[in-house]
Design a binder for these strands. Structure first.
Length: 479
DNA sequence: CCCGTTGGCGCA
DNA sequence: TGCGCCAACGGG
């Protein structure tokens, strides 16, 4: 039945059926006894109405989705794993040779999965077992060696450190390879070849869904192509366009953003103009704005994280690097100020939101549902509060859509925060493409009847469409 | 910035 | 063997 990975769970396998049965019976009994008090608590906390309208009806849709699953292409998985394994061996050879050079020890004594060992290799002085580099970031227990730290080291590299560049590139490249191989390519399908991730419905504080065994939401784009539509079927993807940004605009009544949205303009470009203060925005500046805006809207301050795209040359990643926008801290703070002057409504919205939660210790969402914030006030809690209306709002709209879609029998195989993936027979693609648009774009009464537009993708596997690498992948379509 | 899941290490 | 920590990935 379940998948036993942890040591504690394994202990249950050693119990007799009789003892397991007794345990499960007590579990069920105690759970049943909790139902009445929990419903009462929901009523006392003004959460019951939302439970009845959004949570309970969603359960059937989620169970149907989880039971469906997605078909695994074993060959695609095997060949992709083979390709990455070969690359990992190459990377590890580079790292091992560098380790030998700096430490005079055999490569077998180095564990590239150990961050302390990597830190020692990078930051110990030349001649005493290291490269003599300057660290750029710390952790609780020492020097950080994550992608951001490596980027910082590469950026501030002194001339005399040039010898360490191949090693830094290899370490950078290795972290992604190792993650994909050990984390995303180790799952197994059910006997019928289907991958059925477990859907966590009541895990996220903001009502979003989460997937585990395997964690489908975390799969990088290049891994997704190994899940495909069954023969004679296609995947349809329909996703909301800038879901949280639109919610922010309407919840805060931020007129400048609303105008961009309603005229069909490019909101990221508009925000980039407001941030940078000029109108000829480059692609790099537009990309930068997307990330930067989320950060400042959720309570972050000026300093943006370093770009973490792999800069390595040997495996060709450097050529794929997006244009980097390199800004001083003061400049970023200026940009933030400029944005908030134009979008003062957002400022007011956030101030009122925080004031309300600080005094009442709960937030009643315009789309229904109440969330309590009982922890002592802190800057962390404040950022959670700033995030809640948007992430919870998006999840609520998705829940509404999913309930309606399920009622009509739409074959949902995945719900991913702002998008649904359906699996339909080839001849049904057009019909469901249109119907899913109607349902997802229904007017939202609580927001004055506005609707949030969606985009469409169609493909035979879950990977992103690519002319040569993945011609059957999910491709944007207008229909 | 927020929301998540998971592998691997290293210490108690 | 349990647990904290780090680090990776995705969505907004």
């Amino acid at each position: 039945m379940g998948k036993y990975s942890g040591t504690t769970a394994n202990k249950f396998l050693n119990l007799t059926n009789e003892r397991l049965g007794t345990y499960n019976a007590w579990d069920a009994y105690n759970t049943a006894r909790l139902v009445a008090p929990l419903i009462q608590e929901l009523k006392d906390n003004r959460q019951y109405e939302h439970y009845l309208s959004h949570v309970e009806p969603l359960q059937g849709a989620v169970i149907a989705m989880q039971s469906r699953g997605m078909l695994l292409n074993y060959d695609a998985k095997a060949s992709y794993r083979q390709k990455l394994s070969a690359e990992l061996r190459d990377v590890d050879r580079v790292i091992g040779e560098a380790y030998s050079l700096y430490t005079n020890s055999p490569p077998s004594t180095f564990n590239p999965n150990s961050n302390p060992q990597i830190a020692k290799l990078l930051f110990s002085p030349l001649g005493s077992g290291g490269c003599g580099l300057l660290g750029s970031k710390s952790t609780k227990t020492g020097q950080s060696v994550d992608q951001e730290a490596l980027t910082g080291i590469l950026r501030k590299l002194r001339k005399k450190d040039a010898h360490a560049v191949p090693l830094l590139h290899a370490l950078f490249h290795r972290s992604r390879l190792q993650t994909i191989l050990s984390r995303y390519l180790t799952f197994s399908a059910d006997d019928d070849g289907m991958v059925r991730a477990r859907v966590q419905m009541a895990k996220a504080k903001t009502f979003r869904l989460a997937y585990k065994d395997p964690p489908l939401q975390q799969w990088p784009p290049e891994v997704r192509h190994i899940l495909e539509a069954r023969p004679g079927h296609k995947f349809i993807g329909r996703d909301y366009s800038q879901l949280e940004a639109r919610l922010m605009a309407y919840l805060a009544n931020d007129t400048p953003s609303i105008e961009v949205f309603e005229s069909g303009g490019d909101v990221h470009r508009a925000n980039a103009q407001d941030l940078f203060g000029h109108s000829n925005i480059t692609e790099g500046e537009r990309d930068y704005s997307k990330g930067h805006l989320y950060k400042i809207c959720y309570g972050g301050r000026g300093s943006e994280k370093e770009k973490t795209a792999c800069p390595c040359i040997q495996w060709g990643c450097a050529e794929k690097l997006p244009a980097v926008v390199d800004l001083k801290r003061a400049t970023k703070l200026d940009m933030e100020r400029r944005w908030f002057i134009i979008h003062n409504a957002v400022n007011v919205f956030q101030r009122d939101l925080i004031e309300g939660v600080r005094s009442k210790h709960y937030y009643d969402h315009p789309l229904g549902g109440r969330r309590y914030f009982t922890a002592p006030w802190s800057s962390e809690l404040e950022r959670e509060v700033l995030n809640q209306p948007l992430q919870y709002g998006g999840a609520t709209l998705m829940a509404r859509a999913q309930i309606s879609l399920h009622e009509e029998g739409a074959p949902i195989v995945l719900q991913m925060h702002d998008e649904f993936i359906f699996e339909v027979r080839d001849e049904d693609v057009e019909q469901l493409s249109l119907r899913s648009k109607e349902i997802m774009e229904r007017p939202i009464p609580e927001l004055g009847g506005i609707s949030i537009p969606t985009d469409l993708e169609v493909g035979s596997n879950w990977g992103k469409w690519h002319k040569t690498l993945n011609p059957d992948g999910m491709r944007e379509t207008t229909l």
